[in-house]
Structures are given as C-alpha cells and as structure tokens.
Design a protein around this nucleic acid. Structure first.
Lengths: 237, 237
DNA sequence: TCGATTTTGTTCTCACGTTCACAAGCTCTT
DNA sequence: AAGAGCTTGTGAACGTGAGAACAAAATCGA
C-alpha cells in the first residue's frame, strides 16, 4: 500500500513479495499439485504458466521473488517447487478458522472440502440466532456468538470468516478482533473498519455479477465502442 | 519522455472506463443506496468515499469517467448519482442467470437475496446428478444438465454461474458457451479456457484464505521483515 | 456585486505491475 | 570438449492506477 522505501532490488526471498504475486502463488500451487498427481516430475515455466492461466514471463518473475528454484535448460522440479511455494504461503502449517454466520453461505463454507486439504481447519461455527445453537454441521455444533471469545482463544483461531448479513458484519468483526483474530475473510456486503495489524479480504458475490453485467451490457450496445468485441478474459482477485 | 500525444483527455462517458474503476462502481452503488435509505439527499465525495472505504480523490476520479454528475461547492445528488451508476453498470435491466452445480455453494447462491435486489434473476438450476433432478429450491426445480441448452435459450440467460467441482468446470463452461452464455462467474477451482468474446470472472474461496494465511504467517515471524507490522488492509477485486 | 468558502473535476507525478527480450547457465550430442 | 539447443532469471520499456494538489465552478453572506 504505502510501502515507503521501495527496497532497491535484488532482495529476493522473504521480505517484499508484491501483493499481485502473492495472490497468484495459490494458483501456481494448485496447478503444481495437479501436475504432480498426473505423474509429471519436471515442468517448464511455459507449461506451468499454461496450466495456471498466466503468461510465462510473469510466472518466472513471480517465482524469482521466492528464490532461484529452477534449473536453466531444464525447468522446475514439480515436487520441490510445490513445497517451496506451500512453505512461502504458509499452507504447510495448520490454520484454525472460525466461521461466523451459519446461513446458507456459512454452511456451504463449512462443508467445503477445499479448505481442509490446504491446511485450513474449521474449528468453530458461531451464529447469533440462539435457536440454532447446538445444531450439528459435520462434527461441529453451532455455538452462540457470546461464546466467540472463549472459542477463539481455546481453539487458537487466527482467521475468522464472516458470513452474516451486512448489518451485523461490523459488530462481528469487532468481536473477532477483540478475541484475537488478526485475519478476516468477509463475505458480508459491508465495508469493515479494523485496527492496524488486522488484514481483511472481501469477497462480494453480487459485485462480481455486477462487473460481469457491465461488460455484458457493453457487448450488447454495438455503437458505444468503435471496436467490436475486445473480449476480456478477466480473472480476479 | 513518453508524452507522445497521450490522448489529450476528455475520455468522457461510455468508451473506456478503467477496469479498476468498474470494479469499484458497485461499491459506490451500494453505499449510495444505503445513504439514500437513511434519508440523505446530497453527499460530498468525502462522505461517500468514507462510506465506500476509499480515498476521496480516487472516488472523484472514478466518477469523472462517467461524466460530470456533481455540483461544485455542493456535492452529488444521491438519487441521481445512484441512478447514473446503476445505468452505467447495467443493473437497471434484468439479467437472467443460470446456476450449474447445485451443491452446498450452488444452493447458497440460489438463495442469496443480494442478487434479485440488483437486477439478477436466477432462472434455472442445473446439475449433473440425475437423482437430484426435480428437487425444488425456492420456486425452481433442478433440471438435468442435458437440458442446459434448451433452458438457456428459452429463458434468455446471458450469465452463467459455475459451482461444480473443479474437474467438471471446463466441460460445463463449454456447454454454457455453446448454449450462448457470454459471461461466466466461476467458483470452481479450475482455470477455464473460453473463446474470444466470453468473459470469465473467478472467485476462489480457498485462494482467498491462502492469501490471508500468507500475511498471517508474516506477522508471526518477527525476524523476516525489518519493519514491525505494515498492516495491510486489503480489499479485493 | 463581490469576496469568502466549499467542493468538484483534472492535471501531474510517482509507484506498481506486466511484458519483452536477452544474457546466463544447464544438458546433450557429436 | 566444444558447440547446439533449451530454459531460467532479470534488466528495461511500457502501461495502468493511486494520490496530492490545484484551478474551476457553485453557493452564501455582506
């Protein structure tokens, strides 16, 4: 964001990986896992880039921020690179996650298999509706939000997911922060204010659709642009 | 330097709105709606920027791409600006949406109220599992994926949502495109290949968590960075 | 009417991200 | 062992986006 002192250069590893690169590392990780499972031992930047849906130059530059893990003339060792990226992201450790708001979305999230397989363990489900307390989802029972503080501490949650209606989101965020959560993934349609040191990422389903609608509308009105169809393949995040 | 005739200026309305701006317009729209419902008639860029969680200079620049809808010394008329943004995004019209893959996430999406209220009407639910065909969700019955083509055409879907497992996603995308869908919102963990003219946006829940984990890990290892906590408030997409 | 005040719209500069292009470095063949 | 052929890692050019700062326009009060 404000990154004063832009780190002359050459500083490869653990200091300043650009945010845009960080956002792509999980994509590379997934592609590597798939390639590895298909039996591939070595992969070139070209192949991996195709699998990840990016440009190969961008891929190489991204990887160069982590260090020099490739071999010129050969490529990257799939398993070794996979491990290095996983370590860099922190997916090798276990992260305890609490989900607040067990509506449709919260339930979907709590059942989503893609989390556990990547080091995220959902350890608590919390809702504000007292009548739902005790309801089982998988092997977890819904707890009341008043228990949030205790649960976060006891189970060592550092990541919280907010899947409540928009008007409850800020209050929930405040409680999460007070309990010690320092990273929040927010699905509620609300702008959250949090103290320094707390990271918030926002996923807004209806905003995604609205962005698509904008481009869709653009395709329909032929006169607006002098060009026909620019055809943008936008991949987000 | 590279000053060569950089398109003097005047890039007014409907031609080239930067992608970053397009992604923020829905946020402004939501903030304006909320402010309007609270009875406010006029709003300054400062107020609106705060409500939307952005910098006021950025807000004014974003709005200037749409035209000059404000009044100097006064601010913006809430209702008028709301209408203009909605028109620009295309939220005034009705968009027919088909959801493919009615698992936990697909169900959550089909029940999500935030869509209907913004001009998105879910008109078909499709799944590959024949045993679930006919199951009702709200006032829609699940149809088999073989009916996809017919449904898309009959109900005029231009937007498709993919909420299937990753390995089915590409096949579903192909079918959607073949049926005439030109915008796809992809929740499946897979990189989609689509023809020119089709827009794809991707939302990947586990990637979002992994990005948080990266920053979380960074907070934990005190030696890595010479700075303490840069504290990035990252709001995405 | 004129000046003070407010707030927009825009210009300018800087930082960030993407892509190109190529030297450096590795393997394999002859 | 030397050259041919690949593929990585990176320097440099380019394009996009963000924020500061300010001129232009509107209101208000005297």
């Amino acid at each position: 964001m404000n990154q004063l002192r832009a780190q002359a250069n050459g500083r490869p590893a653990s200091s300043g990986i650009p945010e845009a690169t960080v956002a792509r590392l999980p994509v590379y990780l997934r592609a590597l896992t798939a390639l590895g499972e298909s039996g591939l031992r070595t992969v070139s930047s070209e192949q991996l880039a195709t699998a990840a849906g990016v440009n190969s130059a961008k891929l190489r530059k991204d990887l160069s921020y982590l260090g020099s893990y490739g071999t010129r003339g050969v490529g990257y060792d799939v398993e070794y690179l996979r491990y290095q990226i996983a370590r860099e992201i922190g997916v090798n450790q276990d992260w305890a996650v609490v989900i607040v708001g067990i509506g449709n979305l919260g339930q979907a999230l709590s059942n989503y298999g893609g989390f556990r397989s990547r080091g995220f363990r959902i350890v608590a489900l919390v809702d504000g509706d007292a009548s739902r307390v005790g309801e089982m989802h998988g092997d977890l029972a819904i707890a009341h939000i008043d228990e949030l503080d205790r649960l976060v501490v006891e189970r060592g949650c550092s990541i919280g997911v907010i899947a409540t209606p928009g008007d409850a989101a800020q209050a929930v965020a405040d409680r999460l922060v007070a309990a010690g959560v320092t990273s929040i993934l927010n699905f509620a349609p609300a702008v959250l204010t949090v103290p320094e040191g707390v990271d918030v990422r926002k996923v807004d389903l209806s905003i995604e659709l609205q962005i698509l609608a904008y481009h869709e509308q653009r395709k329909r009105t032929p006169g607006a642009d002098r060009e026909g169809l620019p055809s943008e393949q936008v991949v987000e995040s």
